[in-house]
């Protein structure tokens, strides 16, 4: 599969650009975090497209971002659990 380029994205309407990047990100994340791939991909897609394109080409920065997203998800889940315990 040829790498996703800026010109390919620029040719697409804005709302389609996130879907296009997501289709590339998802399989990479699925390999590492199968159950959370959809959630993590959704979180990363809020990052601006230029940084996302860079991450698609550099696995270590993608992995770092994925681990950050995972940590945020776990933190949010723990906070929610604590809130529920307080009630």
């Amino acid at each position: 599969q040829e790498p996703l380029t800026v010109s390919m994205l620029a040719a697409a309407p804005l709302h389609k650009q996130k879907q296009m990047i997501g289709e590339r990100l998802y399989p990479l994340i699925y390999n590492v975090h199968t159950q959370l791939a959809g959630k993590i991909t959704g979180m990363l897609l809020e990052i601006d497209n230029s940084e996302l394109l860079y991450m698609l080409e550099s696995p270590e920065s993608l992995n770092a971002k994925v681990e950050e997203a995972l940590a945020v998800l776990i933190q949010a889940h723990q906070t929610m659990e604590e809130e529920q315990m307080k009630v």
Binding site: Q19, G22, E23, L25, Y26, P27, Y30, G38, K39, T41, G42, M43, L44, L45, E46, I47, K65, E68, A69, A71, V72, L73, Q75, A76, H77
Partner: peptide, 21 residues
């Protein structure tokens, strides 16, 4: 440092991704 990632982001639904067999 605080992460800028949003845990409530909308989940992404892949269209073209086929689950590996």
């Amino acid at each position: 440092r605080k992460s800028t990632l949003n845990p409530n982001a909308k989940e992404f639904n892949p269209r073209s991704f086929s689950q590996p067999k």
